[in-house]
């Protein structure tokens, strides 16, 4: 089967974001960018399914300006077979992203779409579910285990308070949670090989999708600063403060 893996270029998770002084947005100039950590888990799962003989081809797709080709190349170095960049100037909202991905799914006809449960920049946790809805495909969000059996897939999901197992008809959309796997690192020879793998560039117009944004950003502010705390000298003092001052135990 064919697997489609959408990946997103986001700020590296180690970088502390700064809010611009005019509060218009966060400042992303000259910060390190990387593949969204949940997308890495999605790529890894697709590669494992290929290694297990379940998948025959993995397509990595990313939406954004030319720089996101870097993340597609990373996915190719990790084991994806070919890439598609959907060229947009800025990051579209989740609904537009889902509509763009829907067009790619209809063209490529993958049996599975595996993607991250959320990106660590917008923290929306929406695109996978929206894609599934637009395609009328079943969805398994927050996956911690994926087993393909014939024309169905069994997915164990992380839910509040435990785990839930669902069986979905294929084709389906799966979004990854942390526990699904540990992504591998790309080796130098594979990074070199990835440079020669095919990478197509498409525009929203090619896909017949109009990218809009129905949510406007009014302001971005830093979160409230915490008041400076105190250092206590002993465990007894700590217990006393927690009991009598903070009253939390």
């Amino acid at each position: 089967m064919k697997i489609l893996v959408p990946v997103k270029r986001v700020i590296d998770y180690n970088v502390k974001v700064r809010v611009k002084s005019d509060n218009s947005d966060v400042d992303l100039s000259n910060v390190k960018m990387a593949m969204n950590p949940f997308c890495e888990i999605a790529v890894e799962e697709a590669v494992r399914l290929k290694e297990a003989g379940v998948a025959s081809e993995i397509i990595a797709v990313s939406i954004g300006d030319k720089a996101c080709q870097e993340q597609i190349r990373t996915a190719l170095a990790l084991g994806a077979d070919r890439g598609i960049q959907i060229e947009t100037e800025s990051a579209p909202d989740a609904l537009s992203a889902a509509k763009l991905l829907k067009a790619v799914v209809q063209a490529e006809q993958p049996q599975l779409v595996i993607m991250g449960k959320q990106s660590i920049d917008s923290d929306n946790n929406q695109t996978g579910q929206m894609l599934a809805a637009l395609l009328d495909y079943p969805q398994a969000t927050f996956a911690s285990e994926v087993k393909v059996e014939g024309d169905k897939v069994q997915v164990t999901r992380e839910i509040d308070g435990g785990l839930q197992t669902l069986e979905l008809d294929l084709p389906a959309v799966i979004t990854t949670d942390l526990r699904l796997n540990e992504p591998r690192y790309a080796s130098l020879p594979n990074i070199m090989k990835a440079k020669r793998k095919p990478l197509d560039v498409k525009t929203p117009a090619d896909l017949g999708v109009e990218v809009g944004n129905k949510v406007t950003l009014v302001a971005v502010n830093p979160p409230a600063e915490r008041q400076a705390g105190i250092k206590v000298a002993s465990v007894s003092e700590l217990v006393d403060k927690l009991k009598n001052e903070a009253k939390v135990v």
């Binding site: 974001v17 660590i120 923290d123 950003l217 302001a219 971005v220 979160p223």
Partner: peptide, 9 residues
């Protein structure tokens, strides 16, 4: 947004 490092209105 950004894991709580910024608050978007």
């Amino acid at each position: 947004i950004y894991a709580g490092n910024a608050i978007a209105t």
